[in-house]
Design a protein around this nucleic acid. Sequence first.
DNA 1: AAATATATCTTGACACCGGTAAGATTATGC
DNA 2: GCATAATCTTACCGGTGTCAAGATATATTT
Lengths: 194, 194
Amino acid sequence: MPNKPYHHGNLRSSLIEAGIVLINREGAKQLSLRKVCALCGVSQTAPYSHFRNKEDLLEAMQHYVTEQLMEVLEDAIESCPDQSDPFVLIQIGKSYVLFFIRHPQYFQFLFSQPIMTVNLSLDGDGTKNFPPFELLKSVVLRIFGAAGMPKEKMEDMIISLWATVHGLASIATMKNVHYDKDWEIKIQDIIWNK
Amino acid sequence: MPNKPYHHGNLRSSLIEAGIVLINREGAKQLSLRKVCALCGVSQTAPYSHFRNKEDLLEAMQHYVTEQLMEVLEDAIESCPDQSDPFVLIQIGKSYVLFFIRHPQYFQFLFSQPIMTVNLSLDGDGTKNFPPFELLKSVVLRIFGAAGMPKEKMEDMIISLWATVHGLASIATMKNVHYDKDWEIKIQDIIWNK
DNA sequence: AAATATATCTTGACACCGGTAAGATTATGC
DNA sequence: GCATAATCTTACCGGTGTCAAGATATATTT
Protein backbone atom coordinates (compact mmCIF):
# COMPACT_ATOMS: atom_id res chain seq x y z
CA MET A 1 0.00 0.00 0.00
CA PRO A 2 2.01 2.97 -1.28
CA ASN A 3 1.79 6.37 0.36
CA LYS A 4 -0.16 8.90 -1.61
CA PRO A 5 2.40 10.89 -3.56
CA TYR A 6 2.49 14.66 -3.23
CA HIS A 7 1.89 15.08 -6.94
CA HIS A 8 -1.24 13.51 -8.31
CA GLY A 9 0.15 12.74 -11.73
CA ASN A 10 -2.72 13.58 -14.05
CA LEU A 11 -4.90 15.79 -11.93
CA ARG A 12 -6.19 17.89 -14.80
CA SER A 13 -8.01 15.07 -16.57
CA SER A 14 -8.99 13.48 -13.26
CA LEU A 15 -10.75 16.67 -12.22
CA ILE A 16 -12.65 16.76 -15.49
CA GLU A 17 -13.78 13.16 -15.17
CA ALA A 18 -14.63 13.50 -11.48
CA GLY A 19 -16.72 16.55 -12.36
CA ILE A 20 -18.57 14.52 -14.98
CA VAL A 21 -19.21 11.76 -12.46
CA LEU A 22 -20.65 14.23 -9.97
CA ILE A 23 -22.85 15.87 -12.59
CA ASN A 24 -24.35 12.52 -13.49
CA ARG A 25 -24.73 11.72 -9.81
CA GLU A 26 -26.33 14.88 -8.44
CA GLY A 27 -26.76 17.30 -11.33
CA ALA A 28 -24.90 20.36 -12.52
CA LYS A 29 -26.55 22.62 -10.00
CA GLN A 30 -25.09 20.79 -7.01
CA LEU A 31 -21.57 20.64 -8.40
CA SER A 32 -18.89 22.34 -6.33
CA LEU A 33 -15.16 22.57 -6.79
CA ARG A 34 -14.61 21.22 -3.30
CA LYS A 35 -16.62 18.06 -4.00
CA VAL A 36 -14.60 17.46 -7.15
CA CYS A 37 -11.40 17.91 -5.15
CA ALA A 38 -12.59 15.52 -2.48
CA LEU A 39 -13.40 12.91 -5.11
CA CYS A 40 -9.87 13.25 -6.48
CA GLY A 41 -8.38 13.10 -2.99
CA VAL A 42 -6.77 16.48 -3.30
CA SER A 43 -6.94 19.79 -1.47
CA GLN A 44 -9.47 22.50 -2.27
CA THR A 45 -7.09 24.74 -4.15
CA ALA A 46 -5.25 22.13 -6.17
CA PRO A 47 -7.36 22.80 -9.31
CA TYR A 48 -5.98 26.31 -9.55
CA SER A 49 -2.74 24.93 -10.88
CA HIS A 50 -4.63 23.58 -13.89
CA PHE A 51 -7.62 25.87 -14.31
CA ARG A 52 -8.00 29.62 -13.89
CA ASN A 53 -11.23 29.19 -11.91
CA LYS A 54 -14.37 27.08 -11.69
CA GLU A 55 -15.68 28.43 -15.00
CA ASP A 56 -12.53 27.22 -16.67
CA LEU A 57 -12.97 23.68 -15.35
CA LEU A 58 -16.62 23.69 -16.37
CA GLU A 59 -15.61 24.77 -19.85
CA ALA A 60 -13.17 21.87 -20.12
CA MET A 61 -15.92 19.53 -18.93
CA GLN A 62 -18.26 20.94 -21.56
CA HIS A 63 -15.72 20.20 -24.26
CA TYR A 64 -15.40 16.68 -22.85
CA VAL A 65 -19.17 16.10 -23.09
CA THR A 66 -19.36 17.74 -26.49
CA GLU A 67 -16.80 15.29 -27.81
CA GLN A 68 -18.89 12.37 -26.58
CA LEU A 69 -21.89 13.86 -28.36
CA MET A 70 -19.88 14.36 -31.54
CA GLU A 71 -18.87 10.69 -31.57
CA VAL A 72 -22.51 9.66 -31.32
CA LEU A 73 -23.51 12.00 -34.14
CA GLU A 74 -20.66 10.89 -36.40
CA ASP A 75 -21.58 7.26 -35.81
CA ALA A 76 -25.15 8.11 -36.80
CA ILE A 77 -23.97 9.64 -40.05
CA GLU A 78 -21.73 6.74 -40.88
CA SER A 79 -24.54 4.27 -40.27
CA CYS A 80 -26.48 5.71 -43.23
CA PRO A 81 -26.00 3.79 -46.46
CA ASP A 82 -26.62 6.82 -48.70
CA GLN A 83 -24.78 9.92 -47.53
CA SER A 84 -26.72 12.17 -49.90
CA ASP A 85 -30.12 11.05 -48.67
CA PRO A 86 -31.90 13.60 -46.42
CA PHE A 87 -32.55 10.65 -44.14
CA VAL A 88 -29.11 11.38 -42.71
CA LEU A 89 -30.60 14.49 -41.10
CA ILE A 90 -33.27 12.42 -39.38
CA GLN A 91 -30.61 10.13 -37.99
CA ILE A 92 -28.56 13.05 -36.70
CA GLY A 93 -31.56 14.62 -35.03
CA LYS A 94 -32.63 11.34 -33.51
CA SER A 95 -29.17 10.70 -32.11
CA TYR A 96 -28.98 14.24 -30.77
CA VAL A 97 -32.19 13.89 -28.78
CA LEU A 98 -31.47 10.35 -27.64
CA PHE A 99 -28.03 11.35 -26.40
CA PHE A 100 -29.59 13.81 -23.99
CA ILE A 101 -32.38 11.42 -23.01
CA ARG A 102 -29.69 8.93 -22.06
CA HIS A 103 -27.70 11.61 -20.20
CA PRO A 104 -30.37 13.99 -18.89
CA GLN A 105 -27.96 15.99 -16.75
CA TYR A 106 -25.80 16.87 -19.76
CA PHE A 107 -28.42 19.06 -21.41
CA GLN A 108 -28.71 21.47 -18.51
CA PHE A 109 -25.00 21.40 -18.02
CA LEU A 110 -24.11 22.19 -21.62
CA PHE A 111 -26.68 24.89 -22.27
CA SER A 112 -27.31 26.54 -18.91
CA GLN A 113 -24.37 28.83 -19.49
CA PRO A 114 -23.15 28.02 -22.96
CA ILE A 115 -19.57 29.04 -23.49
CA MET A 116 -19.27 28.01 -27.09
CA THR A 117 -20.27 30.25 -29.95
CA VAL A 118 -23.11 29.50 -32.34
CA ASN A 119 -23.01 31.20 -35.72
CA LEU A 120 -26.34 30.67 -37.41
CA SER A 121 -25.31 31.97 -40.83
CA LEU A 122 -23.75 29.64 -43.36
CA ASP A 123 -20.68 31.71 -44.04
CA GLY A 124 -18.23 32.84 -41.41
CA ASP A 125 -15.74 31.10 -39.24
CA GLY A 126 -17.01 27.67 -38.30
CA THR A 127 -14.00 26.62 -36.25
CA LYS A 128 -15.21 28.40 -33.13
CA ASN A 129 -18.75 27.08 -33.52
CA PHE A 130 -20.48 24.53 -31.32
CA PRO A 131 -19.24 21.40 -33.16
CA PRO A 132 -22.57 19.50 -33.31
CA PHE A 133 -24.20 22.52 -34.90
CA GLU A 134 -21.33 22.91 -37.35
CA LEU A 135 -21.76 19.24 -38.24
CA LEU A 136 -25.44 19.76 -38.98
CA LYS A 137 -24.61 22.75 -41.16
CA SER A 138 -22.04 20.82 -43.17
CA VAL A 139 -24.42 17.93 -43.81
CA VAL A 140 -27.22 20.20 -44.99
CA LEU A 141 -24.75 22.04 -47.19
CA ARG A 142 -23.51 18.79 -48.69
CA ILE A 143 -26.95 17.34 -49.37
CA PHE A 144 -28.94 20.38 -50.45
CA GLY A 145 -26.15 22.66 -51.60
CA ALA A 146 -25.28 20.10 -54.25
CA ALA A 147 -28.95 20.05 -55.26
CA GLY A 148 -28.77 23.78 -55.88
CA MET A 149 -30.85 25.00 -52.97
CA PRO A 150 -30.34 28.73 -52.33
CA LYS A 151 -28.27 29.60 -49.30
CA GLU A 152 -31.08 31.54 -47.63
CA LYS A 153 -33.34 28.52 -47.73
CA MET A 154 -30.69 26.23 -46.38
CA GLU A 155 -30.14 28.55 -43.43
CA ASP A 156 -33.83 28.48 -42.64
CA MET A 157 -33.80 24.71 -42.82
CA ILE A 158 -30.79 24.46 -40.50
CA ILE A 159 -32.29 26.76 -37.91
CA SER A 160 -35.65 25.06 -38.09
CA LEU A 161 -34.14 21.60 -37.83
CA TRP A 162 -31.90 22.43 -34.94
CA ALA A 163 -34.64 24.32 -33.12
CA THR A 164 -36.95 21.31 -33.34
CA VAL A 165 -34.36 18.80 -32.30
CA HIS A 166 -32.90 21.01 -29.59
CA GLY A 167 -36.38 21.81 -28.33
CA LEU A 168 -37.26 18.13 -28.22
CA ALA A 169 -34.14 17.44 -26.20
CA SER A 170 -34.97 20.29 -23.88
CA ILE A 171 -38.50 19.03 -23.30
CA ALA A 172 -37.55 15.38 -23.04
CA THR A 173 -34.94 16.08 -20.37
CA MET A 174 -37.19 18.21 -18.17
CA LYS A 175 -37.70 16.61 -14.81
CA ASN A 176 -41.46 16.97 -14.50
CA VAL A 177 -42.43 15.93 -18.00
CA HIS A 178 -44.89 13.07 -18.30
CA TYR A 179 -45.01 11.16 -21.54
CA ASP A 180 -46.10 7.58 -21.85
CA LYS A 181 -45.07 6.95 -25.45
CA ASP A 182 -41.70 5.75 -26.65
CA TRP A 183 -39.52 8.74 -27.45
CA GLU A 184 -37.32 6.89 -29.90
CA ILE A 185 -40.25 6.18 -32.18
CA LYS A 186 -41.94 9.52 -31.75
CA ILE A 187 -38.85 11.58 -32.38
CA GLN A 188 -38.46 10.10 -35.81
CA ASP A 189 -42.08 10.85 -36.71
CA ILE A 190 -41.84 14.40 -35.46
CA ILE A 191 -38.64 15.25 -37.29
CA TRP A 192 -39.93 13.50 -40.37
CA ASN A 193 -43.14 15.49 -40.51
CA LYS A 194 -41.29 18.77 -40.58
CA MET B 1 -38.86 61.58 6.57
CA PRO B 2 -40.64 58.81 8.48
CA ASN B 3 -38.71 56.15 10.33
CA LYS B 4 -38.68 52.80 8.66
CA PRO B 5 -41.39 50.75 10.33
CA TYR B 6 -40.52 47.42 11.84
CA HIS B 7 -43.03 45.65 9.62
CA HIS B 8 -42.57 46.06 5.92
CA GLY B 9 -46.23 45.81 5.02
CA ASN B 10 -46.21 43.72 1.85
CA LEU B 11 -42.85 42.02 1.95
CA ARG B 12 -43.96 38.88 0.17
CA SER B 13 -44.81 40.56 -3.12
CA SER B 14 -41.94 43.01 -2.72
CA LEU B 15 -39.47 40.13 -2.52
CA ILE B 16 -40.90 38.59 -5.67
CA GLU B 17 -40.67 41.82 -7.61
CA ALA B 18 -37.21 42.65 -6.28
CA GLY B 19 -36.08 39.20 -7.36
CA ILE B 20 -37.43 39.82 -10.85
CA VAL B 21 -35.59 43.14 -10.99
CA LEU B 22 -32.33 41.49 -10.01
CA ILE B 23 -32.77 38.70 -12.54
CA ASN B 24 -33.24 41.22 -15.32
CA ARG B 25 -30.27 43.19 -14.03
CA GLU B 26 -27.66 40.48 -13.51
CA GLY B 27 -29.20 37.15 -14.50
CA ALA B 28 -30.67 34.25 -12.59
CA LYS B 29 -27.28 32.74 -11.83
CA GLN B 30 -26.13 35.74 -9.79
CA LEU B 31 -29.34 35.99 -7.78
CA SER B 32 -28.98 35.62 -4.03
CA LEU B 33 -31.50 35.85 -1.22
CA ARG B 34 -29.34 38.41 0.54
CA LYS B 35 -29.31 40.72 -2.47
CA VAL B 36 -33.07 40.51 -2.70
CA CYS B 37 -33.32 41.34 1.00
CA ALA B 38 -30.96 44.28 0.63
CA LEU B 39 -33.04 45.62 -2.25
CA CYS B 40 -36.12 45.43 -0.04
CA GLY B 41 -34.28 47.03 2.87
CA VAL B 42 -34.83 44.07 5.11
CA SER B 43 -32.67 41.60 7.03
CA GLN B 44 -31.28 38.38 5.56
CA THR B 45 -33.77 36.09 7.23
CA ALA B 46 -36.92 38.12 6.78
CA PRO B 47 -38.03 36.07 3.73
CA TYR B 48 -38.37 32.98 5.91
CA SER B 49 -41.60 34.37 7.32
CA HIS B 50 -43.11 34.22 3.83
CA PHE B 51 -41.23 31.45 2.02
CA ARG B 52 -39.96 28.09 3.19
CA ASN B 53 -36.59 28.64 1.52
CA LYS B 54 -34.95 30.14 -1.56
CA GLU B 55 -36.50 27.50 -3.82
CA ASP B 56 -39.91 28.55 -2.62
CA LEU B 57 -39.29 32.20 -3.48
CA LEU B 58 -37.93 31.22 -6.89
CA GLU B 59 -41.05 29.18 -7.51
CA ALA B 60 -43.25 32.16 -6.71
CA MET B 61 -41.14 34.27 -9.08
CA GLN B 62 -41.55 31.66 -11.79
CA HIS B 63 -45.31 31.84 -11.42
CA TYR B 64 -45.05 35.62 -11.65
CA VAL B 65 -43.11 35.45 -14.92
CA THR B 66 -45.39 32.74 -16.27
CA GLU B 67 -48.39 35.00 -15.77
CA GLN B 68 -46.72 37.75 -17.76
CA LEU B 69 -46.07 35.25 -20.54
CA MET B 70 -49.68 34.06 -20.41
CA GLU B 71 -50.94 37.61 -20.87
CA VAL B 72 -48.78 38.03 -23.96
CA LEU B 73 -50.01 34.74 -25.41
CA GLU B 74 -53.66 35.48 -24.70
CA ASP B 75 -53.31 38.88 -26.33
CA ALA B 76 -51.83 37.16 -29.38
CA ILE B 77 -54.81 34.83 -29.61
CA GLU B 78 -57.32 37.62 -29.24
CA SER B 79 -55.63 39.64 -31.97
CA CYS B 80 -56.55 36.97 -34.53
CA PRO B 81 -59.74 37.73 -36.49
CA ASP B 82 -60.59 34.07 -37.09
CA GLN B 83 -60.19 31.90 -33.99
CA SER B 84 -60.50 28.69 -35.97
CA ASP B 85 -57.74 29.55 -38.42
CA PRO B 86 -54.46 27.65 -37.80
CA PHE B 87 -52.82 31.05 -38.14
CA VAL B 88 -53.58 31.44 -34.45
CA LEU B 89 -50.86 28.87 -33.74
CA ILE B 90 -48.31 30.89 -35.67
CA GLN B 91 -49.19 33.93 -33.62
CA ILE B 92 -48.86 32.04 -30.36
CA GLY B 93 -45.50 30.64 -31.36
CA LYS B 94 -44.26 34.01 -32.52
CA SER B 95 -45.32 35.66 -29.29
CA TYR B 96 -43.73 32.88 -27.26
CA VAL B 97 -40.34 33.34 -28.89
CA LEU B 98 -40.49 37.13 -28.92
CA PHE B 99 -41.37 37.21 -25.24
CA PHE B 100 -38.10 35.48 -24.41
CA ILE B 101 -36.12 37.53 -26.91
CA ARG B 102 -37.40 40.63 -25.15
CA HIS B 103 -36.64 39.15 -21.71
CA PRO B 104 -33.62 36.92 -22.35
CA GLN B 105 -32.98 36.23 -18.66
CA TYR B 106 -36.45 34.77 -18.22
CA PHE B 107 -35.81 31.73 -20.39
CA GLN B 108 -32.93 30.44 -18.32
CA PHE B 109 -34.74 31.31 -15.15
CA LEU B 110 -37.95 29.49 -16.04
CA PHE B 111 -36.45 26.34 -17.49
CA SER B 112 -33.14 25.87 -15.70
CA GLN B 113 -34.92 24.04 -12.90
CA PRO B 114 -38.52 23.81 -14.01
CA ILE B 115 -40.86 23.29 -11.12
CA MET B 116 -44.10 23.06 -13.05
CA THR B 117 -45.33 19.86 -14.56
CA VAL B 118 -45.69 19.22 -18.27
CA ASN B 119 -48.11 16.51 -19.35
CA LEU B 120 -47.56 15.86 -23.04
CA SER B 121 -50.62 13.69 -23.54
CA LEU B 122 -53.96 15.24 -24.40
CA ASP B 123 -55.93 13.66 -21.63
CA GLY B 124 -55.11 13.92 -17.97
CA ASP B 125 -55.16 16.68 -15.45
CA GLY B 126 -54.29 19.95 -17.12
CA THR B 127 -54.62 22.16 -14.06
CA LYS B 128 -51.11 21.36 -12.82
CA ASN B 129 -49.60 21.83 -16.25
CA PHE B 130 -47.31 24.62 -17.35
CA PRO B 131 -50.05 27.10 -18.37
CA PRO B 132 -48.56 28.24 -21.71
CA PHE B 133 -48.31 24.63 -22.80
CA GLU B 134 -51.85 23.94 -21.67
CA LEU B 135 -52.97 26.95 -23.69
CA LEU B 136 -51.29 25.59 -26.81
CA LYS B 137 -52.95 22.22 -26.25
CA SER B 138 -56.40 23.77 -25.93
CA VAL B 139 -56.01 25.82 -29.11
CA VAL B 140 -54.89 22.83 -31.15
CA LEU B 141 -57.76 20.82 -29.69
CA ARG B 142 -60.25 23.54 -30.59
CA ILE B 143 -59.01 24.04 -34.15
CA PHE B 144 -58.17 20.52 -35.25
CA GLY B 145 -60.30 18.52 -32.88
CA ALA B 146 -63.36 20.13 -34.42
CA ALA B 147 -62.02 19.20 -37.84
CA GLY B 148 -61.94 15.57 -36.76
CA MET B 149 -58.20 15.07 -36.52
CA PRO B 150 -57.32 11.93 -34.52
CA LYS B 151 -56.00 12.51 -31.03
CA GLU B 152 -52.68 10.82 -31.73
CA LYS B 153 -51.96 13.15 -34.60
CA MET B 154 -52.88 16.20 -32.56
CA GLU B 155 -50.46 15.15 -29.83
CA ASP B 156 -47.67 14.84 -32.37
CA MET B 157 -48.53 18.25 -33.69
CA ILE B 158 -48.50 19.80 -30.24
CA ILE B 159 -45.16 18.32 -29.29
CA SER B 160 -43.63 19.24 -32.62
CA LEU B 161 -44.95 22.78 -32.47
CA TRP B 162 -43.84 23.40 -28.94
CA ALA B 163 -40.44 21.80 -29.52
CA THR B 164 -39.79 24.09 -32.47
CA VAL B 165 -40.96 27.21 -30.75
CA HIS B 166 -39.27 26.34 -27.47
CA GLY B 167 -36.08 25.44 -29.31
CA LEU B 168 -36.14 28.72 -31.19
CA ALA B 169 -36.52 30.60 -27.93
CA SER B 170 -33.68 28.60 -26.42
CA ILE B 171 -31.37 29.34 -29.34
CA ALA B 172 -32.37 32.96 -29.68
CA THR B 173 -31.66 33.68 -26.02
CA MET B 174 -28.24 32.06 -25.95
CA LYS B 175 -25.55 34.56 -25.19
CA ASN B 176 -23.03 33.61 -27.84
CA VAL B 177 -25.40 33.21 -30.76
CA HIS B 178 -24.67 35.29 -33.82
CA TYR B 179 -27.49 35.98 -36.22
CA ASP B 180 -27.71 38.99 -38.45
CA LYS B 181 -31.28 38.54 -39.68
CA ASP B 182 -34.44 39.85 -38.06
CA TRP B 183 -35.82 37.21 -35.73
CA GLU B 184 -39.38 38.47 -35.87
CA ILE B 185 -39.58 37.86 -39.61
CA LYS B 186 -37.67 34.60 -39.58
CA ILE B 187 -39.64 33.06 -36.77
CA GLN B 188 -42.85 33.32 -38.72
CA ASP B 189 -41.28 31.68 -41.78
CA ILE B 190 -39.83 28.87 -39.76
CA ILE B 191 -43.01 28.04 -37.88
CA TRP B 192 -44.98 28.38 -41.06
CA ASN B 193 -42.85 25.91 -43.00
CA LYS B 194 -43.41 23.20 -40.47
C1' DA C 1 -59.08 48.52 27.53
C1' DA C 2 -55.93 45.12 28.99
C1' DA C 3 -53.89 40.71 28.33
C1' DT C 4 -52.66 37.19 25.48
C1' DA C 5 -51.46 35.08 21.19
C1' DT C 6 -49.73 35.28 16.61
C1' DA C 7 -47.29 37.13 12.74
C1' DT C 8 -43.39 39.47 11.29
C1' DC C 9 -38.70 41.02 11.47
C1' DT C 10 -33.66 41.20 13.62
C1' DT C 11 -29.34 39.51 15.51
C1' DG C 12 -26.08 35.93 15.87
C1' DA C 13 -24.22 31.87 14.41
C1' DC C 14 -22.97 27.73 11.43
C1' DA C 15 -21.41 25.11 7.42
C1' DC C 16 -20.49 25.45 2.71
C1' DC C 17 -18.69 27.83 -1.35
C1' DG C 18 -15.20 30.22 -4.75
C1' DG C 19 -10.96 32.45 -4.58
C1' DT C 20 -6.27 34.63 -2.83
C1' DA C 21 -1.66 34.48 -0.53
C1' DA C 22 2.17 32.24 1.14
C1' DG C 23 4.68 28.32 1.76
C1' DA C 24 5.91 23.15 1.19
C1' DT C 25 7.08 19.41 -1.95
C1' DT C 26 8.41 17.38 -6.15
C1' DA C 27 9.84 17.39 -10.96
C1' DT C 28 12.61 19.52 -14.66
C1' DG C 29 16.41 21.69 -17.11
C1' DC C 30 21.08 23.16 -17.19
C1' DG D 1 23.93 18.82 -8.32
C1' DC D 2 21.76 22.98 -8.26
C1' DA D 3 18.42 26.39 -9.63
C1' DT D 4 14.07 26.96 -11.52
C1' DA D 5 9.49 25.87 -12.40
C1' DA D 6 5.38 23.17 -11.67
C1' DT D 7 2.36 21.21 -8.49
C1' DC D 8 0.03 20.76 -4.20
C1' DT D 9 -1.15 22.29 0.90
C1' DT D 10 -2.51 25.27 4.74
C1' DA D 11 -4.57 29.45 6.30
C1' DC D 12 -7.68 32.75 5.42
C1' DC D 13 -11.34 36.05 3.27
C1' DG D 14 -15.99 37.54 1.84
C1' DG D 15 -20.33 35.76 0.30
C1' DT D 16 -24.29 32.39 0.62
C1' DG D 17 -28.43 29.60 2.48
C1' DT D 18 -30.40 28.48 6.70
C1' DC D 19 -31.36 27.65 11.71
C1' DA D 20 -32.20 29.31 16.59
C1' DA D 21 -33.48 32.71 19.71
C1' DG D 22 -35.21 36.96 20.68
C1' DA D 23 -37.45 41.66 19.60
C1' DT D 24 -41.44 44.17 17.88
C1' DA D 25 -45.79 44.97 16.00
C1' DT D 26 -50.48 43.32 14.87
C1' DA D 27 -54.57 40.46 15.88
C1' DT D 28 -57.57 38.16 18.99
C1' DT D 29 -59.69 37.31 23.17
C1' DT D 30 -61.56 38.52 27.48
